[in-house]
Amino acid sequence: MDDNKINKLNPELWVNNYGDYLYNYAISKLLSKDLAEDLLQETFLAAFKSKEKFKGKSSEKTWLISILKIKIADYYRKKYKNIEQEQNYDSPFIEDKFMHGRWKEESAPNEWNISNINLSDDNDFLAVLKKCISFLPDKWKAVFVLKHIDEANNNEICNELNVSESNIWTILHRSRLKLRQCIENLWYKN
């Protein structure tokens, strides 16, 4: 038995062996095939350049995924940093003194026919949800997606994007308010 099995890299086989898996992984986090292909290419290139650093302790596949994850986080981090201004936020709540914090009439939740959603083809609903995620302001999208990639904890996102934890909760909450409204508009009013 060889306990210190050292995994070797075979770059010439990467694309064929792991291409599809990594491609799907990237699509699930980026929700775009073009973007996924770009980052996949960057991942293979980065891996190829740093192949000397591969210690052989993990499998080739695990190593490649870890590089892809870094590329995806980089992508969102850049996106987050490139936007200077927080987009105008249209609160769904009344902000005046007397009705403070209540739902505005036009943005109060309507009742959804949930059993209808569960019965219907899930893909229709997921397509609407994806569309609504794509409508989120870029800054929010970066936080939102990073939060849902492998259920990252807030500390990781704080470090990656350099935002405070309370800011993360606020952004996640505002994103979800917006998603709910967007789904209601696309799914129910059409």
């Binding site: 694309v15 699930s28 849902h148």
Partner: peptide
């Protein structure tokens, strides 16, 4: 309204989990 929000937020959450699961994707290069 918040009871509705509670139900809908949970449903959205469930679907979000689905979107980010690689299992749901079967694309080929």
């Amino acid at each position: 309204f918040c009871r509705l929000y509670n139900v809908e937020s949970k449903l959205i959450n469930e679907k979000i989990q689905k979107i980010y699961k690689i299992k749901e994707y079967n694309y080929k290069l």
